[in-house]
Design a binder for these strands. Structure first.
Lengths: 130, 130
DNA sequence: TCTTGACTTGGAGCTAACTCCATATAGTAC
DNA sequence: GTACTATATGGAGTTAGCTCCAAGTCAAGA
């Protein structure tokens, strides 16, 4: 698979993919004779991993650290478990923040929908709505 | 309430709070004789709004746009509803990405926990685990 | 073979959201 | 009033994560 195919598959740019490789968020990708990247199933699996975690806000640095540990072999299994656990924990917190904000927006939206109908914007929770 | 109190209350720095005011993510805060910020309940409510949305990843620009519309009065109610709905939608997508990543991490973590016990790292879903 | 378009690299440039700094003024305890 | 700490302002600096660019190489079709 060429870099273009991979980009389309995951909805990211070639620059981003090369950047991920450069900083180690995915392992070095194999090349053709002429030096052109050729993505096999394993490479794709790493791309999927990086893209999924990035979309959730995991730092490129953390992803790269995981790849680095992975390439060091079995002695780093515990270190990888700890890294993953830490990231999992911070995503859990992020999930909470996100849920709070969704709740806030849903509340405001309900008030605004009413306001559009009745012409009056009111806040029943907090008298200081905004 | 002084800027320091507000910072402590919300766990952000005074610089951030002044920055939010400068770019309009919160309305202008009232000042004392000498020009020092004095946060009343309404100001606090705006700060709460900004902090909550920022923690979920809503851009400062979008928050500022909401404040701007709010200050323009009742003619902007529909515009505000649309803005809030758009932001709500993108948080919904973000929630999904986050959930996917949490699921991925939980799966990996379960594999790693097993590996720490058994000494063997295996992937039952995808034979190309990483 | 020639042309055209995709791909390569190293490195510079960009944006959002802070974060820090210098200088000056305000408030507070004594 | 003096000393000391907090706050104000404008503007420069920082960081992450891309994004773009130039100059050159590679590959597929006419």
């Amino acid at each position: 698979m060429t870099i273009k195919d991979v980009c389309e598959k995951f909805g990211i740019t070639a620059d981003t993919l090369r950047y991920y490789e450069k900083v180690g968020a995915i392992p070095k990708v194999g090349r053709s004779q002429g030096g052109i990247r050729e993505y096999d199933d394993e490479a794709l699996s790493w791309v999927r991993n990086a893209v999924c975690l990035r979309k959730a806000g995991v730092s490129v640095e953390a992803i790269a650290e995981y790849v680095r540990l992975f390439n060091m072999g079995d002695e780093t299994i515990e270190a990888r478990l700890e890294l993953l656990s830490n990231e999992r924990e911070s995503l859990g917190k992020q999930l909470e923040e996100l849920t709070n904000a969704v709740e806030l927006l849903d509340y405001k939206i309900s008030r605004y929908r009413e306001a559009v109908e009745t012409g009056v914007l009111t806040w029943d929770r907090d008298p200081l709505g905004n």
